[in-house]
Design a protein around this nucleic acid. Structure first.
Length: 742
DNA sequence: CGGATAACTTAGCATATGCCGG
DNA sequence: CCGGCATATGCTAAGTTATCCG
């Protein structure tokens, strides 16, 4: 218990001055705040050093695992079916593909060393975006009111901006500036405006005419007849056909993104310094193809040549090119339903499941290490805690020319606010500049440590974990389990949470009711992972509409109750509670409901009239006379009159069929039903408005959990997985029985 | 060893699709 | 049956991590 680990006795590397650590971005390098020394003093944070020590002996128990585990059981490889590349009949290629995929059940026979991804790989290359089509001569950019004769190269770039004129990007000054710089550059390179107008200021450019032209084109496309649209779609599919599939070890498999990304303006998320920059056109010369050595090399377009032909069977990309915004690579890869992606996915979840065997130890360890005498160990402990409990990402360092977003290791002083005794407010921008905001209670010792990590001279801009980065953290995690890294915790906790939530669902009720609960479970996971979406622009309006609808149902119900009392006063005595709600509706509320209902009725008839006549016009039939509309509207007027009277007298007029207490009660029951469904639906929609369920379903929740749920609860799999997810998760659907557990 | 980077997963948004209620 | 809305899909940006390289 009191054995002092040797590395703590010596002045170890932990105590090197912080300012000799690798330089940190964003202003101020982390100060040497003396924490490292003070931390060992008991009075600093009052921990029991004896206890702190015991942990280290524990840590030494953790077995080191070789980096590469090559000793994994090597099962026999499935004999692969050789598929003829030329099917005699090409009429139904996709059917062939699906048969192929079904034939290859890799999950029934997991194998081997996965550094070699394939032995043969053949494909037809990639699709390039069409050449630029110059605008008609009367559509121009205007500069200080004068049309500019732009060279096509520059016109194309102006068009990229014009297309975004009504978007938020176009209002963003950084976007404007970056676009304008690149635009001027292209303009210069292409010889400047042909009518020698010199463009100098962004503010003097008017892209409206180009924008309007694009809108018109969109409109015209929409106006095409269904047959024409169908024809276009058919042509598109036919053109894409050769690129959609490839042959991997002789099996026909789907390619994911076989289209080269078209040029445009870079739309970075959040405050990205490069947003608006010109993303340049990619030519065959920029593209590297990956194929097997004997594979026929697809022909490059017209007079072009491929940049390079590679034969690298240790990777799973088919083509790649370098992109000019951040100088990184873009890849053409297999589709999500491909065997290689499926295998990776399966391994990901199996790895997460493996973490179950170690999580207790890991948690016990980081709890103990929260009190370690070594600063690095404490930071590792706190970071692991945050990653485990709050599902933070690893948080690698980012460069100055990317958006300022953070994850665990890159958290800074200002991202964490401490509220004694042990409340922490996290507020930072994470991946995709999505805000992470949580006010939470944390472990007491975690709170103390965060206080230490924030101690002066540390101040805003400084790293909280000044000794840590994902590589150090991951190396530490590998000690517990081969392949364990920070991101595995997200997968593990997401799937574990889903399992726990699904376990709480009783096997009863309709499929719809079960699905509501499944989605609620899914939502718990999405919230854990902070998967958000922006509320759709019509959301507020939609909610209001639905709320009003419910109000109107309530009002109808009250009317019927009043009507019952008119028919038979004695009903009140029999069940006074039933009639209580009549009093809930004030005259004002009722009047405003009347107004809404009437207004909607009027609108309905106006629309009906307009639509009907449009149709008749198209069919060259005689139009409805205005008198028809008038007649309809008069009926609404009558209704309005009737409601007005009702409001004054309280007397309800109903059609003859409803002049009967039993029928009214039945109607009221129906209304109650509708109110309940509508209310649940509304709540569900509201709860979902800011939460994206898809991301966790696609990436984090072991699909076998959903399969088991469906099997056990008799829910059709289509209810939980869309077509594409069923393809992606075929391995799960076919392999999990109803007793499977994460 | 550490920084750079290649290769992969994860992410939200825009747009296409299709489904459901009036 | 049809329009409006929700959902599914496509697109590509933005992460993580292993590995490369000096």
């Amino acid at each position: 218990m009191t054995v002092k680990p040797k590395h703590e006795l010596s002045s170890d590397e932990e105590d090197i001055p912080l300012n000799s650590q690798k330089k940190r971005r964003r202003a101020n390098a982390t100060p040497a705040n003396g924490n490292d020394i003070k931390i060992v003093k008991k009075e600093e944070d009052g921990y029991d050093s004896d206890e702190a020590l015991s942990k280290v002996s524990r840590a030494s128990k953790v077995s080191k695992v070789p980096k590469k585990n090559k000793s994994q059981k090597k099962k026999k490889e499935v004999p692969q079916k050789i598929v003829k590349e030329e099917t005699a009949n090409e009429e139904d290629e996709s059917r062939d593909a699906s048969i192929d995929a079904e034939d290859f059940k890799w999950w029934e026979n997991q194998n081997k060393d996965d550094s070699i991804k394939w032995t043969t790989l053949r494909h037809n290359g990639v699709i390039f975006p069409p050449d630029y089509q110059p605008l008609p001569s009367h559509i121009k950019l205007y500069y200080e009111g004068t049309p500019v004769a732009l060279p096509p190269q520059a016109e194309e770039v102006a068009g990229f901006f014009a297309a975004l004129l009504e978007s938020e990007h176009a209002k963003n000054p950084v976007f404007q500036k970056n676009f304008f710089e690149d635009f001027l550059q292209v303009l210069k390179e292409s010889g400047g405006a042909k009518n020698s107008i010199e463009i100098k200021e962004f503010e003097k450019c008017d892209f409206r005419k180009i924008y309007d032209y694009f809108e018109l084109q969109k409109e015209q496309k929409k106006q095409l007849s269904p047959q024409e649209k169908k024809q276009l779609k058919l042509e598109k599919e036919e053109f894409e056909e050769p690129y959609k599939f490839c042959f991997l070890d002789g099996r026909k498999e789907q390619v994911g993104n076989f289209r080269i990304e078209p040029p445009g303006l870079f739309r970075g998320r959040g405050a990205h310094p490069k947003t608006g920059r010109l993303k340049r056109r990619v030519y065959p010369e920029d593209v590297v193809l990956n194929l097997d050595k004997e594979a026929p090399i697809p022909e490059a377009p017209d007079g072009h040549k491929w940049g390079e032909i590679r034969h690298d069977n240790t990777v799973q990309w088919l083509a790649m090119w370098r992109e000019n915004i951040s100088n990184s690579f873009k890849y053409v890869r297999f589709a999500a339903n491909s065997s290689l992606k499926g295998i990776s996915d399966y391994k990901k979840f199996e790895k997460a499941r493996q973490l179950k065997e170690h999580i207790v130890t890991i948690r016990a360890d980081y709890r103990k290490n929260l009190k370690s005498k070594v600063m690095l160990e404490r930071q590792i402990a706190v970071a692991t805690y945050l990653i485990d409990v709050f599902a933070l990402r690893a948080g690698g360092e980012k460069s100055e020319d990317e958006a300022d977003t953070v994850g665990c290791c890159s958290l800074r002083y200002e991202h964490v606010t401490l509220k004694p005794p042990n409340t922490v407010i996290f507020d930072f921008l994470g991946k995709d500049s999505i805000r992470f905001y949580q006010e939470v209670e944390v472990d007491k010792q975690v709170f103390k440590n965060l206080t230490i990590f924030k101690k002066p001279p540390k101040k805003p801009g400084h790293q909280l974990f000044d000794r840590l980065d994902p590589s150090i953290l991951n190396k530490h995690l590998q000690n517990y389990m081969p392949g364990l890294t920070a991101k595995v915790f997200r997968t593990y906790n997401a799937s574990k949470t889903m399992q726990d939530q699904l376990d709480l669902i009783p096997n009863e009720g309709t499929v719809a009711e079960k699905m509501l609960k499944y989605n609620a479970a899914n939502r718990t996971v999405a919230i854990l992972c902070n998967h958000q979406r922006t509320v759709t622009k019509g959301h507020a309006a939609a909610v209001q509409k639905a709320t009003e609808k419910i109000e109107e149902l309530e009002w109808q119900k009250i009317r019927y109750k009043r009507a019952i009392l008119e028919l038979d006063k004695s009903e009140l005595k029999k069940d006074p509670k039933f009639f209580e709600e009549i009093e809930d509706l004030t005259k004002e509320e009722e009047a405003s409901i009347h107004k809404r209902v009437i207004e909607r009725e009027r609108e309905k008839y106006n629309k009906k009239f307009a639509r009907e006549n449009e149709k008749r016009k198209f069919d060259k039939e005689e139009l409805l006379p205005e008198s028809q509309l008038k007649e309809w509207l008069e009926r609404v007027d009558e209704l309005e009159e009737q409601y007005k009277k009702e409001l004054e007298t309280g007397e309800i007029q109903l059609k003859a069929t409803l002049q009967n207490v039993e029928k009214l009660r039945a109607q009221i029951d129906k209304l109650d039903q509708r109110i309940e469904t509508s209310t649940i639906q509304l709540k569900d929609r509201e709860d979902n408005s800011q939460v994206a369920l898809g991301t966790s379903k696609i990436n984090y929740i072991d699909p076998r959990l959903s399969v088991v749920f469906c099997k056990k609860y008799n829910v059709p799999i289509e209810k939980v997985f869309t077509k594409s997810l069923r393809d992606k998760f075929k391995w799960a659907i076919e392999s999990a029985d109803e007793n499977w557990r994460f």
